[in-house]
Design a binder for these strands. Sequence first.
DNA 1: CGCGTCATTGATGTGCATCAAGTGGTGTGG
DNA 2: CCACACCACTTGATGCACATCAATGACGCG
Lengths: 220, 220
Amino acid sequence: MPIDLSQQELDRIDEVVAVRRKVKRGAMLFRNGEKFTNLYAIRTGFFKTCVDTEDGRDQVTGFQMAGEVIGLDGIVNDQHTCNAVALEDAEVCVMPFDRLEELSREITALQRHVHKIMSREIVREHGVMLLLGSMRAEERLAAFLLNLVQRLFARGFSQSELVLRMTREEIGSYLGLKLETVSRTFSKFADEGIVEVKQRHVRILKIDALKEIVNPQVCN
Amino acid sequence: MPIDLSQQELDRIDEVVAVRRKVKRGAMLFRNGEKFTNLYAIRTGFFKTCVDTEDGRDQVTGFQMAGEVIGLDGIVNDQHTCNAVALEDAEVCVMPFDRLEELSREITALQRHVHKIMSREIVREHGVMLLLGSMRAEERLAAFLLNLVQRLFARGFSQSELVLRMTREEIGSYLGLKLETVSRTFSKFADEGIVEVKQRHVRILKIDALKEIVNPQVCN
DNA sequence: CGCGTCATTGATGTGCATCAAGTGGTGTGG
DNA sequence: CCACACCACTTGATGCACATCAATGACGCG
């Protein structure tokens, strides 16, 4: 909450956010079909959200890290429509949604904040649609890496080094690719000296080259 | 607004929604980069929203019809991040967002309604991600047709007949396909007797076959 | 140490893109 | 009213990016 609020307001918000919950690596925070009552703010750890269909298809819809909010999908029908899985041991703030609504009726800044969070998610998904709808494998992976490292950097991590918390298959699912294609594309980037890849450890050597791949030079 | 409210509350909401705006076919309701001030509820007509990148890529992110709300993308950064184009002459209600926030602080049902609209959009986009990430051309087009006809049916139109308001290219952009592929897939469905296609007029002959394509038989 | 999970790499196949030609419907101006 | 131009659409031929199938290799954990 990067907003200035009175102490009293802060106290009331703290109250809503008081309850914590730990989620073990591999465990689900909520699952498709489950009744919706809370939003969750991630304190530590790393999640994926995914939708799954009757016929066994499974699409990762996002990867979330500390400071991000999950569960917004549940509001519309009072039940969750996707699964949230911890990719490493994690801890979240449990935020009862009706309490949140109540409070945001009284604290304008909080109301605005909630709206922005939802809007941000909509805009993020627009970006994913662009990626899935019109990018090639290399562009997708480059965009993915840039996005990850940028979010990690905003949290105080390195701008050039990261540890993937997800498998190649999960990356592939998110990017609309098969795991082999993800692996091959990593290898290609490595061959070209753009990144160094060792299992899940990735070091970005030429961040400009990645940007160039996502956004092919527009000069005339 | 399928909610019961007092007359006084209804009057206040009507006030927020009082201003109308007409949009000619082909004209933009708002565009990428434009300052965000309003949400828009479509009264009549048909819109597409699309994001475009510097390098000329263009992704249709949705098609919207009467009763649906557009502009949610603008909330997070106080400016729109996509274009909304009328695909036929249209009329919208202009809803100043700050007035809407104000009022939804006082009318709980309105607040809840706004939240649901945003959540619905998030869930819809999850569905599109699933489509773009894991479906084949026939599945995409079948899902698209089923979705359109279902929404039209909910508005009192035929369950089996529809007029497409968008070009093959726009359908393709939305579905992550080229226009030729969209055209071919239509032809294939027609050959198989699943639909009758005459330009933009589509009659669905075997709706179950379409559903079967989207959701291949799950028995055992 | 041995087993399971995840990742890499190669060989082959295919679904869709690309390129190209032609058709039909619509609107415009002579 | 017709000739023409334009645009959306259809259809065919070819190519390519990514999927699929398959074998092997690298960690990590009990």
